[in-house]
């Protein structure tokens, strides 16, 4: 691998390369700047921020803003901190990601290995769902959730995100399974494996890379969603994003920037974590369909 990279890299002079690295490092620093600002200001007392010097390192290091953001800051009318909303988000994201990924995998399996009349049209329609703007479905969706008795509940949000996610997850898995050899499915059929056994024993074990793609994609989208959360959640099912907004937008009292920064990082942490843990596989999975091993 290292050899290949060296051989195929464009040969450049030393000075040019230094310059390129310098520029890249500068870009990287610039790009990291907001994170730096958030981090340093989240561990400062409020006076140090309001006294100017947003870029300075804290004189007095404190985790107080983090603790406050997590457990005692005023969110709306209750001084609960973000923690209950964090768990709301988890309770929404985990089932939504799991269900949409599993359904996407099943759809991809059926659309490629159990072809039927009109399957391409059906797939086209599912893809179409990826391009429907969120705003258009708000009112019909609210009505549907009301009819189903899911209005204002976590499960209502799960349903919304699953419905919206299926188009993407189906696309991922369909394209992945399209290059999965059909002869394997036929061999398994002759061996006596049924519909779900083939899926479970033959396809899924080989689906790691694309499952990671689907999970990361769904996790980030659902975790970061604000519109559906703000529109459909009840008081006790509001996700982290909505709570963060309420924290920052609170109209009374002083603006506690250090707490806001800590809260924002808390809200971003899970997606960050998912990328760090699975990011490598993300790229590999995206490549898997196009490049045959």
């Amino acid at each position: 691998m290292a050899h290949a990279t060296q051989d195929t890299a464009i040969r450049t002079g030393r000075a040019v390369r230094m310059l390129i690295y310098l520029v890249l490092i500068l870009f990287a620093l610039f790009y990291m700047l907001p994170l730096y600002v958030m981090l340093v200001n989240s561990v400062k007392p409020l006076e140090e921020i309001t006294g100017g010097g947003m870029m300075n390192l804290p004189q007095l290091w404190t985790l107080e803003p983090w603790a406050k953001a997590w457990s005692s800051a005023q969110i709306g009318v209750e001084p609960t901190g973000l923690s209950p909303y964090f768990w709301n988000s988890i309770k929404m994201v985990v089932p939504a990601v799991a269900i949409s990924t599993i359904l996407g995998a099943l759809n991809g399996y059926v659309l490629t290995k159990w072809r039927f009349r009109g399957d391409t049209i059906l797939f086209g329609l599912m893809l179409f769902a990826c391009f429907i703007p969120f705003q258009i479905v708000l009112i019909p969706m609210a009505r549907m959730l009301g009819l189903m008795g899911l209005a204002g509940t976590t499960w209502g949000l799960v349903l919304v995100h699953v419905v919206y996610g299926i188009g993407f997850t189906t696309l991922y898995f369909r394209n992945y399974y399209a290059v999965f050899p059909t002869e394997l499915v036929r061999a398994a059929q002759i061996d006596g494996a049924g519909f779900f056994q083939i899926f479970w024993r033959i396809l899924l074990p080989s689906s790691g890379p694309i499952a990671v793609v689907s999970i990361i994609w769904q996790f980030t989208n659902i975790w970061n969603d604000f519109l559906f959360g703000a529109s459909f959640a009840g008081a006790d099912s509001q996700p982290m994003t909505v709570a963060l907004n309420n924290l920052v937008q609170a109209s009374h009292g002083v603006k506690e920037y250090n707490v806001h920064f800590a809260g924002a990082i808390l809200a971003a942490l899970p997606t960050l974590l998912v990328y760090i843990v699975a990011g490598r596989y993300f790229v590999r999975g995206l490549m898997a369909g196009s490049v045959k091993g």
Partner: peptide, 8 residues
Amino acid sequence: FQSYALYP
């Protein structure tokens, strides 16, 4: 099968 179709 031609491709052997061994379960990978």
